[in-house]
Design a protein around this nucleic acid. Structure first.
Lengths: 268, 268
DNA sequence: CGATCGTTTGACGGTGCTCAATCACCGTGG
DNA sequence: CCACGGTGATTGAGCACCGTCAAACGATCG
């Protein structure tokens, strides 16, 4: 399990209150007594370590308490496909319930902690605690809805558009979490982003450079600041057809030319 | 003129038994009495019509009884992104529960019928009928797991690999439904496939031609027969890097059996 | 039959992938 | 403190696959 003999880990409790779990999931518990009485195990996962591996039996459904995870699958040819990133309040591993085996792995991108809901107790717990049942259903529904996010980024043809959409998704999450939507701290590597966008990792670097050169972003390694959200959004619109010239300062650098007229990409 | 044999409209019941619903979902109902007593509304959707539109309020969660639907989202620029296709037994519209509004549209690709579970009764129904609760959880978990499918196809760089993976996914579904995994009847247009694969629809046509030319498939408009499943699988492995030692068009009509692919005849 | 839509095929230009080299940043150990 | 190896990030050069535009072909329906 977890290393209990670590002195600097002593601050971490091994159990948390159910009401706290509901709180990080964004649900309000109307029944404090029941929720406070119920305790949920807490697991700590160090940066780089795995919460679980693809193909292993699913013991628990996890809810991120603190930190970030990347969800990935290994293709038959060994390619590591990053399916998404899970932050605070998000459910990890629910996709394993259908047959009891994890179809994907979860790796911590930084030191993180999760609530672990044992699968065996899940049904009875959901039945006993209605707020948890509702919170799970809502979160799962949202997760299904956001599973279109990877399609959204990969659907764009231009790599800068893919990156722009990805950054806007991150920004929206930051805003939903009550933090600044402009300053992004990306805990994942360029290679992880590349896998998630469906491009080569060199292309991610180049796209960061382009977006920064056009004045949309300020990039410092993994610290990104969005300088022009409106412009970024308008750039992110172009699913097909390539980026048109940037209207900011006179095209000093390398403004992309689009020879076609300005008609929108309405293909039908 | 006379209605001697008119199963056209009259044959469709407006309600179905809950046990039948559980049956198409692949779940066995251990309590026949309760399930038989409960009736579920059935809706008919004609080919090309919408089950619901993006942005509308979600009244029901639907389960496909017969037919096929395409699930799509309209991007800001009007591009129609096809997120997936739903066949018999699959749940449609659960992603709307989190905020009550459909984040995507569902269009029937052929004359279809669905069970409609009203959202208001959903919670009480799940609480009363345990098999339905379990079936819903299982199906949703499977849906989450299969939402990686679109990432799987779009992750490949070569368009033929994307198409091969898509066809293999369809084949797996056919097999899971107890039908032949070799003969595929594709109810969707080339443009729909193209949007789902993230390529231009002309490229889909070309890729069909390539796969057929290499002997993997036999294509007749929307009727596809998989001639060499093993070869198709081995081709589908190449996520990155273009197909190794592929017979570049140098007059070789058929070069499928030669070289590297020979070692891939393993059971999977 | 004519109209509309879907499918196929062709040609051209461009963008991103592959292969490399270089730089920046660490933690390690001499 | 600096050399050292390792990882991650950036930049460059060439090539070919795919997107766009265009037109022919085929199917379905009224």
């Amino acid at each position: 399990m977890e290393q209990t003999v670590q002195p600097h880990v002593a601050a971490l409790p091994t159990q948390g209150r159910l009401s706290d779990l509901l709180s990080v999931m964004g649900a309000e518990s109307d029944d404090r007594r029941l929720c406070d009485a119920c305790l949920v195990p807490i697991r700590r996962v160090r940066s780089g370590a795995a919460l679980f591996h693809e193909g292993t039996r699913a013991e628990s459904v996890h809810v991120v308490r603190l930190g970030t995870f990347k969800i990935l699958r290994l293709a038959d040819d060994g390619y590591e496909q990053v399916l998404g990133f899970a932050g605070q309040g998000e459910v990890i591993g629910f996709d394993a319930l259908c047959n009891g085996v994890h179809p994907s792995s979860a790796l911590a991108l930084e030191d993180s902690t999760v609530y672990a809901l044992p699968v065996r107790e899940l049904e009875s717990l959901r039945r006993r605690v209605a707020p948890l049942d509702r919170a799970l259903q809502t979160t799962l529904s949202a997760q299904l809805a956001s599973s279109a996010g990877i399609a959204e980024v990969m659907a764009a043809v231009a790599s800068e558009v893919r990156l722009a959409r990805f950054l806007l998704q991150r920004s929206a999450r930051m805003q939903a979490a009550g933090q600044s939507p402009r300053r992004l701290r990306l805990p994942m590597s360029r290679r992880d982003i590349a896998s998630h966008l469906g491009v080569a990792h060199e292309t991610v670097s180049r796209s960061f450079g382009e977006l920064a050169g056009w004045g949309y972003l300020s990039v410092d390694n993994r610290e990104v600041e969005i300088l022009d959200p409106q412009g970024l959004r308008s750039l992110a619109r172009n699913t097909r057809g390539f980026v048109e010239e940037r209207p900011t300062r006179s095209g000093l650098g390398r403004a992309r030319l689009s020879r076609s007229n300005g008609a929108c990409a309405r293909t039908q």
